[in-house]
Simulated scan of single mutants.
Amino acid sequence: MSILKRLFGRAGDKAPAEQPSETYKGFTITPQPAKDGGQFRIGALIEKDVGGTTRSHHLIRADRLESFEAAAEASLAKARQMIDEQGERLFSD
């Protein structure tokens, strides 16, 4: 069976297409939902150029959703919320 699975795969095994980044209040958000079992965990990369240096923050949430598309949209919403609440403090060491 594993040989057939490797040859033909399953529809759910395909890697989702990479999501485009968006700019929000000077920050770049790239949704990066992670597959977790049969669902997708919310995740995003938040970046901003600060004084010629690109700073980044990896957002990872415990929330899981059924589809990649729903998780990508929720990832963008959570990242926007974090930017609204924390702004530059996201990059505090």
Rank of each mutant, 00 (worst) to 15 (best):
G87D: 06
D84C: 02
I29Q: 06
K5N: 11
R89N: 14
K14C: 08
F68Q: 02
D84E: 04
I83S: 01
A79D: 10
A74G: 01
I29N: 07
F91K: 01
T54Y: 08
R10L: 12
I42N: 00
I46V: 15
R80Q: 09
P16F: 09
A62I: 00
P16Q: 05
I60R: 08
L65Y: 15
H57Y: 13
G9N: 13
K5C: 09
T54W: 08
R6K: 13
I60H: 06
R80V: 08
L65G: 08
I42C: 05
D63G: 01
S21R: 03
A70M: 03
R64N: 13
T30K: 06
M1R: 07
Q39N: 09
A44F: 05
V50Q: 14
I60K: 10
V50I: 15
I42L: 12
G12P: 08
F68K: 01
F91V: 06
D49G: 10
R55I: 08
T23G: 06
S92Y: 07
A70E: 12
G51F: 04
A44N: 04
R6W: 13
G9E: 11
G51V: 14
E47F: 02
P33I: 03
Q86Y: 06
L7E: 12
D84M: 00
A72H: 01
G51R: 03
A71K: 03
A79I: 02
R89A: 15
G43M: 10
K14L: 11
H58L: 14
L76K: 08
F68P: 01
A34S: 14
M82S: 00
E47L: 12
G38T: 12
G37A: 10
T54C: 09
R55Y: 12
E73M: 05
A62H: 02
Y24R: 05
S2N: 14
A71I: 01
P31Y: 05
R6S: 03
L65V: 04
S2H: 12
S92P: 01
I3P: 12
G9K: 12
L76E: 10
F27R: 07
